[in-house]
């Protein structure tokens, strides 16, 4: 919208509003809530990393002398499942699956989709047109169907799932990073660096990458959340890591089958705890991504 068509006072209001974050950017804090969410994500990561060192019961083998389907209590913090296994322990070990696939898949997607996207958007030309069109066509194909088919036929190892999901996510990451790079590739500071004789690699790494970093980070976190959901769904369908290895998705699946009385027992805790764990992690990831996005003023990305 041009200034000409906006009534002056309203235009003044608008500019004032637009100016405000700029002035306060240095002092604007991300807020307590943001840091609580960061703290939660960190806690989950740390717990998953040092799970082996923690004084936890074996997540895969139950104590058959203990109680079955117990509620939360002192012996077992969050209770036990139908195979006498400690739910708290299984939750912590299960976090590994979500985190490895989520962060691993995103990392892989960024390497496979992000780096070509930067080079493609920077160099333009035929290769860029080709890659861009390809990404459109590939995105028309239902990725979830492909992932399910490949994972089933190929195997359920954690690294295979991470690899497949990472590859499946690459075209989408390609599009986002390409769009972001394009908006910087023709800016004056890039041209200036070119004129000074900087190599393409140096321009991409030193001039463009720092500028698209806010997009990469906030979109990356959303990608992590999306992939965790995808893995959770696969787990829930019994298509991810094989039992007895715990994942939040397969715990929810076992919990639901108990719920509906398929095994003649019920244990609502086995639904409530993994569901809460999943909700809190996804919620924190979304909050952090969203706050970072508005903090760095990245335009909203439509997934």
């Amino acid at each position: 919208m041009s200034d000409q068509i906006t009534p002056p006072a309203i235009a003044a209001t608008a500019t004032a509003a637009a100016d405000e974050p700029e002035e306060e950017l240095t002092t604007k804090s991300l807020g307590l809530f943001f840091w609580i969410c960061v703290g939660w994500i960190t806690l989950v990561i740390v717990m998953a990393l040092i799970a082996d060192l923690l004084p936890l019961p074996d997540p895969n083998i139950g104590n058959f002398n203990g109680s079955q389907n117990a509620g939360p209590g002192w012996g077992h913090l969050l209770g036990t499942d139908d195979l006498y296994r400690d739910i708290f322990s299984r939750l912590i070990f299960g976090a590994r699956v979500s985190l490895v696939v989520g962060f691993g898949g995103t990392g892989l997607g960024l390497i496979l989709g992000g780096i070509p996207a930067m080079v493609s958007a920077y160099r333009r030309g035929r290769v860029d047109t080709l890659l861009n069109t390809t990404s459109y066509v590939v995105l028309a194909f239902p990725a979830i169907v492909a992932v399910i088919a490949i994972v089933t036929f190929w195997g359920h190892a954690l690294w295979k799932i991470t690899l497949v999901i990472g590859i499946a996510g690459a075209p989408l990451i390609f599009r986002v990073i390409r769009a972001s790079t394009l908006s910087y590739a023709t800016r004056d500071f890039v041209l200036a660096a070119k004129a000074l004789g900087a190599s393409d690699r140096r321009i991409l790494a030193r001039e463009i990458l720092p500028n698209i970093m806010p997009t990469v980070v906030s979109f990356g976190l959303i990608a992590v959340a999306t992939i965790i959901v995808l893995e959770g769904s696969l787990s829930f369908l019994g298509l991810s890591v094989s039992p007895p290895t715990p994942s939040w998705g397969n715990m929810l699946n076992e919990g639901s089958s108990l719920l509906t009385g398929a095994k003649g027992q019920t244990n609502p805790w086995l639904v409530i705890f993994p569901a809460s764990a999943m909700f809190l992690l996804l919620f924190s990831l979304n909050v952090v991504a969203d706050k970072l996005r508005s903090h760095f003023d990245v335009t909203e990305i439509k997934l």
Partner: peptide, 14 residues
């Protein structure tokens, strides 16, 4: 008199 409340203060437009 017309003024607009903005984050930086009141804009006295009329």
């Amino acid at each position: 008199h017309v003024s607009f409340a903005t984050p930086r203060g009141a804009v006295r437009a009329v």
